[in-house]
Nucleic acid binder design. Structure first.
Lengths: 330, 330
DNA sequence: TACACGTTGCCATGGCAACCCATA
DNA sequence: TATGGGTTGCCATGGCAACGTGTA
């Protein structure tokens, strides 16, 4: 289960979608013992340039997409990606594969205080350094179903303050800050019995954030599903859809999404798996000595593009492996 | 300011009231510089046998009253006593001294679980040892305007468990327990700036509890007043009554009683004063060697009665001293 | 059917900052 | 009018027990 793992990828291609670049990998899975069901698992990883080139928000991010964050909601087949873009479901609704086109947008909103207001009295939010608010907006994004461990987030913040020579506030005040920037954050306590830790629920690290190299390590990536997911491992991808549809988008105010019927995949094994593979393989950035003379016709952009393709490939491998584990091994 | 302090008590007598024994001390105060007001401060300490001789609740307590707990609400002149009895205001409403007859009952209620139910499934409340519930009922009582520091109460509880060879629960679970026994407890954080401690608000140690020897030491006695009390030291007992009356009894659901307009006398100086005097002088119980031959006609009850009278006297001295300090010194 | 275990409700405590009031 | 200080609102975290679900 190291980086050299090879996987039965049957097809891999890139598509140009409405709003960006799609990476599509397809694998045919023959169902195991249960019910004789044979289903096709198709994994679609959406990678797109941000739809809004708002320089204020994205001024620090290069537009070359980084490793893909993803999560899968087995209740409706939704695969959440790590981009901040809006993705339309594929138009081929005639497909009987209900899992092949459910790529939804990341819902939610965040509040970007006007940075040019220099004379107004500072509230506890705007009292925070504009650089800190900017840092939050640059590195995090609302994402239904995702959660971030609070201590991890606060560690990131402390690191940011250290780098920017800013005075850090305490965790409670930081909580007020981030809740004022990302509206609607909820609280969850995840972890093994007797060892649960507080998480912000409804936020994740942006795909192009350099923090990604650490986020998985700290349980930054979680999966969510409804009741359907509870039977995930038993059903072996049963095609029954229990009435849920992509149109039932997660509603940030929907209490049912915080109810006990919701289960996550944030157990130790899953996190360990994702950490030991995904983050280790994919999230290291290629560092090239600027003194090295590149071959003719090869630019830094080409290298970055190669890096991204390579990462995408590794990621798809891991996703397939991940799914296979659930299909057959668990 | 030690036990030998003598005070200008003008009058001290005992009365028989509707429901028990009253100890009355009167002192005439000549107002100081403010407004030329001259007011009469009359302190009435009510001591009564519990109206309900419910043996289940009071089976462990002898009916010889112990030292009097008291508190004074300057907004309406109410002096709260430490008894668990209901006291009618004195009938002489013609008195122009609005402070002389406002002895109100201790409002609130507590829940006494049926001790003989041995077979019912235990909830988190009744799971607690019946002895612990009994201990709570025996030693504490609801009292509007009083507060008890949580850590103090928990220490008492730990001591109780140690003595009774019971397994103690943690502070959070103890909080659930005591809130289920004494309904309507509220939370306050009292103390000096940056050093506030959590208190249960609406409860106090019973007057006849042996815990009284420690309660003051831990800030168990607090005074409450409305806005009127904020001007207490300035007004020097102005007779203006700002509309509040004894009929405006504290309502446990009245949010205004938890509003910021409420101030307390739980500052360090007051607590120190009460501690260093009241508890030290009064709350030590007289221990008599059982081998000593008492003089003819002298019974243990006589000694206890003497002890109580002596304590009453000391307490009145202290109350007067306390009031005098506020009248003239502060 | 009993057990294991993640999640959550209800308690606990503490820090910071806003607020209000008394005081200088 | 400015300052000091107690109180409290709004965050934080943690323990225990109940609950629900998966599993043996």
């Amino acid at each position: 289960m190291a980086s050299s793992t090879t996987l039965p990828i049957r097809n891999e291609s890139r598509l140009n979608g409405q709003q960006g670049q799609y990476l599509v990998a397809t694998t045919n899975q023959t169902g195991g013992e249960t019910n004789g069901n044979q289903t096709t698992g198709r994994v679609i990883i959406a990678k797109a340039h941000p739809p809004s080139q708002n320089s204020q928000i994205n001024q620090n991010s290069n537009n070359i997409s980084g490793p893909v964050q993803f999560q899968f909601n087995s209740s409706d087949g939704t695969l959440y990606t790590g981009t901040n873009s809006f993705f339309q479901p594929q138009s081929s609704n005639a497909s009987s594969d209900s899992f092949s086109h459910h790529i939804l947008s990341c819902t939610g909103g965040y509040f970007v205080p006007s940075l040019e207001s220099g004379s107004q009295p500072l509230t506890h939010t705007t009292r925070a350094s504009p650089a800190t608010v900017q840092w939050l907006v640059d590195n995090f994004e609302p994402a239904e179903g995702c959660s971030l461990r609070r201590s991890t987030l606060y560690s990131f913040y402390l690191q940011h303050c250290s780098e920017q020579k800013l005075e850090a506030v305490n965790p409670a005040s930081f909580g007020k800050l981030i809740r004022s920037v990302f509206l609607g954050l909820r609280t969850r306590r995840l972890g093994t019995r007797g060892n649960s830790k507080y998480h912000y629920y409804g936020i994740r690290v942006k795909q192009n954030s350099s923090l990604n190299a650490f986020s998985d390590e700290h349980g930054g990536l979680t999966f969510r599903g409804n009741n359907a997911f509870a039977n995930f491992k038993n059903r072996r991808w049963s095609t029954s859809n229990d009435g849920s549809s992509p149109e039932n988008k997660p509603n940030i105010n929907d209490q049912s999404y915080s109810s006990q019927s919701e289960s996550t995949l944030s157990q130790t094994d899953t996190k360990q798996f994702l950490h030991e593979n995904n983050s280790f393989i994919i999230n290291e950035n290629i560092q090239i000595d600027s003194n090295i003379q590149l071959p003719d016709g090869i630019t830094q952009d080409d290298i970055k593009r190669f890096e991204n393709i390579y990462k995408d490939h590794c990621l798809v491998n891991l996703i397939i492996l991940f799914f296979l584990l659930f299909f057959f091994l668990i």
